[in-house]
Each structure stands twice: as structure tokens, then as C-alpha cells.
Amino acid sequence: MDFSLLFNHFWEFTITGLAFGAIYALIALGYTLVYGVLRLINFAHSEVFMWGGFAAVWVLLAFGASQASGLGIVGLLVVAFATAMAASALVALGLEFVAYRPLRKRNSPPLIALISAIGASYTLSETMGLRDKPFKLLGIDNKMVDYVGRPREASPFGLNIETKRLFHVFDYQVSNKDLIVLGSAIVMMILLDQFMQRSRLGRGIRAVAQDPESAAMMGVNRDRVIRLTFVIGGAMAGAAAVMYLLKVEQIRYNSGFLLGVKAFTAAVLGGIGNLRGALLGGFILGVAENYGQAIFGGQWKDVVAFTLLVVILLFRPTGLLGESLGKARA
């Protein structure tokens, strides 16, 4: 155990932890939204994230982003965000249509939907991992090799953003990437929070989460609300995918799995079904992992994070901020 390392580099561990925590938090929003409205753990959400990331990579490739510089990079980054968010939202919507809606129409028990979620997760992940096959059948895989070649390997981000150190926070020099990740995450979170609180549609989502039948009687279209939650959750996951690409600079067909587990943990930590809880959970998890690694060593990173989860749930069984999307103010 080495506490001096943590104390001497406290801010560096904290800020890099917060930056990755922001990614967890944005993905966690998708789990929490869907759970709040449908009481369903959408295990395929991690794949929604991964598909958004690939969409961004492909669009950047099509734009020839590796040659870009200066303002071009800023523009392409915006394009990457827009693409990933749109693609993820679309995949999430398709997922709802194919994997969940037919079950809901037949009033299937929740467990069946859970199995459907797991199946959809595998399907989406393996489709990405085998994406060269259809192109091989068409005989155009050589032309598309940048996009579909070696599908089991990591694809690079494609946008060369040089790491620059901008300013000090105590002993740590914050980099431009930290700033982009944290800044855009916070902007997304505020926008979503305001949308949920102030807009008509946001009120609809909260109403359905609180009491679907009363909401229906008040004229809220439940199907539309459900579609909307998938779209919002998907868009957040897409934004998270670009942040992930900024930090890790590569994505793989199975990249979603690990992040999915972490983000789901973050959602439970904060109180599943609670938007602000998901955000808080994500940040806490990201920071706790870094502290754990600093004190106990890298192999204990996940042990520390999950022990924390268990301890918090022992004292607050519904998570830090409580469970319900409807009851809590968010």
C-alpha cells in the first residue's frame, strides 16, 4: 500500500479519473433512462455505444481526417460527435423496435426481455466483429479494406489531436483532451437535465416512469415516450463513444462490454432510474478506480471499485440518490 503516491499526485489521479468517469456517466444515463421507463436492464446498450464509435471512425475516414489540421480538426470533431450521436440513437431505436417492442406488445414477462437484451448485445457485437463477411460476398472487401479489413482488430480514431497541456490545477497540467471530454460531458448533462425538467417531452418521460397508466390517461403516448428514451440514451452513448475515442484512440467490436459493465455499475451506484444519480455514480466510479489503483496497484482497480459499490449499497440499498426517475426531481 502506498498512500504517499496518491497524496503527492492527488489532482492528477482525480482529474484523469473524472475524465473517464464522465464517459461512464454518459453511458450510465442510457441504462438509467430505459430502466426508469420500462423497468428493463438494456444490456445491449453497451453495443449502442460501440456502434456509435465505429460510425464516427468511418465518417472521419471518409473525410480523410488523418490529414486535417487547425480549424479542420475542430470541425471534424463536431462532425464526429454528430455522427456518433445520430448513429447510436438510430441503433438504439432499431434495437427497441426489433428486440423489445414485439415482446412488450405481447405482454411478455420482464425476464424474457432481459434474454432478448443479451441476445441483441451479442448480435450487435458479433455483427461488427464479422463486418468483412458481407463485403467479401459482394467481392468488394478489397475496396473497403480501411473500413472492414481485420474486423476483430482495433480501429484507430483517425483524428490526430495532439495532446497539449493547457493550465495547472495544483500539481497537474490539464490537457486539451481532458478539457474536451469533461467540458462536453458537462454540457450534455446540463442540456439533458434541463430537457427533462422543463420540456413537455421530458415531463412525459417522467410521467410514464412514475405511473404509466395515469400518464396514459392524461394523454401521454407511452410508445412515443419509450422511443424517445431510447433515442436520448443512444445519443448520450454516442457522445460517450467519441470521448472514449479521444482518450483511448481506438475502438474494437468488443470495446462496449467492459464499459457497459462499468456504466451499469455507475447507474446502480447512483440509484438506477435516477439521472443525476447516474452522473454522480459515473464520476465516483471513475475516481474511485484511480484512487484504488494508486493505493493498491493496478490489479486491484476493479476490486476497489466493486467493493465500494457493495459498501454503498449496504447502507443505501437504492443507490446514492434513490431509485425512481419519476419521484426524484430529475
Binding site: N8, F13, T16, G17, E289, Q293, A294, G298
Partner: peptide, 22 residues
């Protein structure tokens, strides 16, 4: 020294980076 997770099971190495620099 510091350990990482098994191959392909870790994305964020920021704590290891901090330790190496320190």
C-alpha cells in the same frame, strides 16, 4: 511497478501513467 488487467480488459491506464511519471 504496477499491474494492468488481462489483455484487452482495460481501456484506461491513467493511474499507471501517473505512477510511471512519478
Amino acid at each position: 511497478n504496477d499491474e494492468t488487467a488481462a489483455d484487452g480488459k482495460q481501456d484506461d491506464f491513467s493511474a499507471t501513467v501517473t505512477k510511471a511519471k512519478a
